[in-house]
């Protein structure tokens, strides 16, 4: 199976089960979780099912295209199912069958892995899914994002595209992967790896990156004051990537590193809180029409004790109507 077929197959599989096939976010991010389709949509009471492939940048993992298993950027295929259906594991296993990893032939295991993103103020419980000893998916029940308790809970599935493709194509270097019949992953990606490794490790001017971080952070705060949550969150994403970049350059100490993580988390928190408020103002439009009013009323009634309380109250107010909502699968 060519790498692009792997993406097609997963897109088709999840589209058939009720997911919106989103497109990757056009901002540099370190993980699919940063995509507004995940980080923001998991907040509040509105159901949401989506899948997308995301180009993810991890500057410090760059190896100038020399390491067969590690690179400064890679693809994640991410699925978010909110609320998490009770048979989400079965759905997931069917998706593995669809891409040719049949549990009748492979040793598939769900191995404990608690997920946490200190920059997003997010955590969840779940597993890393092993196929013959190889981690192929991160499977997480999101419990909190941006410091807000999540109700309903989103199940997030993150497939490691390259690893799965390497396994399916039986190659030992990601650069030998066949993207399609004619083009290899190396042909597409190696020049980027070489140049961006050089940039991040040798050419990046730390002071510029620090300045960019400060500017983005200021913009994020300013835009939040203006009630523009989505642009504000975009600057949060940009700051986070800027941080990853000067971190890869080795430009900050351990203590400074913690401080920067705290600053990104502060932005993520503020955006998450503002986002829930803005959705309430819009009347939680992704809820079925007959449930919107009661969710908004519940949010308003609890809002005084904080956005978190409001979000939980809105979720609880409609949880008895689960059968009226869209479920994946």
């Amino acid at each position: 199976m060519y790498l692009q077929d792997l993406i097609f197959t997963l897109q088709k599989f999840w589209a058939d089960r009720g997911c919106v096939i989103e497109q990757p976010v056009d901002v540099s991010v370190g993980a699919g979780t940063f995509h507004p389709a995940t980080f923001l949509r998991v907040l509040g009471p509105e159901p949401w099912n989506a899948a997308f492939a995301q180009f993810c940048r991890r500057p410090s993992d760059g190896r100038y295209g020399d390491n067969p298993n590690r690179a400064g950027a890679y693809y994640q295929f991410q699925v978010g199912l909110k609320p998490s259906p009770l048979h989400v594991q079965d759905l997931y296993l069917d998706s593995l069958r669809a891409i040719g990893l049949d549990p009748a032939s492979h040793d598939i295991r769900f191995v404990e892995d608690d997920w946490e993103s200190p920059t997003l103020g997010a955590w969840g419980l779940g597993w890393e899914v092993w196929c013959d000893g190889m981690e192929v998916t991160q499977f997480t029940y999101f419990q909190q994002a941006g410091g807000i308790d999540l109700l309903p809970v989103t199940a997030e599935l993150t497939y490691g595209i390259e690893r799965i493709a390497m396994y399916l194509q039986d190659v030992s270097s990601m650069f030998d992967l066949k993207w399609d019949k004619h083009v290899t992953y190396g042909q597409l990606r190696r020049p980027w790896e070489v140049e961006f490794s050089t940039y991040h490790f040798e050419e990046l001017v730390a002071d510029n990156a620090f300045r960019a971080f400060d500017t983005y952070e200021a913009e994020c705060k300013r835009l939040l004051e203006r009630g523009l949550v989505l642009p504000a969150y975009e600057f949060c994403m940009k700051s986070s990537h800027e941080f990853n970049s000067f971190d890869a350059r080795g430009a900050i100490s351990v203590t400074e590193r913690q401080r920067f993580i705290g600053r990104v988390r502060g932005m993520a928190r503020a955006c998450a809180h503002a986002y829930v408020g803005s959705r309430a103002k819009l009347g939680f439009p992704m809820l079925p029409p007959q449930l919107r009013e009661q969710a908004v009323a519940a949010y308003r009634a609890a809002e005084e004790s904080g956005v978190n309380a409001g979000a939980l109250a809105a979720g609880r107010s409609v949880s008895g109507h689960a059968s009226e909502m869209l479920y994946a699968g």
Binding site: D107, R109, M134
Partner: peptide
């Protein structure tokens, strides 16, 4: 393993690949 598979050699090969990359590191 946690299951019976059609051909254990396939699973063994998969595990060998993972280990080889870890040992290369």
């Amino acid at each position: 393993m946690a299951t019976i598979v059609k051909d254990p050699a396939v699973v063994a090969r998969g595990n060998e690949t993972v280990l080889a990359s870890r040992l290369s590191d």
